[in-house]
């Protein structure tokens, strides 16, 4: 299959990961190998059915009990007034 190799930095950015030049080179080689391995998948003819007859399981649209707020916040690195805090989102004017 003809694969257009992605720009590793752009792909990493989409995945919210920062990579170094060294990592980019390593991942690029891995892509070459892996997509070479995946190549045969292109031989599958269109039209082969995808889903079985079984219905997909869906959860009931109903409220369920969840953990206590304090327990949920206990794992957060920064909390203020019962809320998780994060670095600034908007630039200061």
């Amino acid at each position: 299959m003809n694969v257009q190799k992605p720009d590793m930095f752009k792909l990493a950015s989409l995945a919210n990961i920062t990579i170094t030049q060294e990592e980019a080179a390593l991942f690029s080689n891995y892509f070459d190998e892996l997509f070479g391995f995946f190549d045969g998948i292109g031989t599958i003819e269109p039209g082969t059915p995808i889903l079985s007859d079984e219905m997909l399981a869906l959860r009931k649209d109903a409220a369920i009990s969840v953990c206590d707020r304090a327990e949920l916040l206990a794992n957060a690195k920064a909390v203020e007034d019962g809320c998780v805090t994060v670095p600034k989102v908007m630039e200061e004017l």
């Binding site: 990493a12 990961i17 920062t18 670095p87 600034k88 989102v89």
Partner: peptide, 25 residues
């Protein structure tokens, strides 16, 4: 310094190499 930067640094430093490359693929 900002939220987007936090996401990226957190994931870059927190995940090992095998996990990162699988996420990228």
């Amino acid at each position: 310094e900002d939220l987007q930067c936090m996401y990226r640094l957190t994931r870059s430093e927190g995940f090992g190499s095998e996990v990162k490359r699988r996420i990228l693929v």
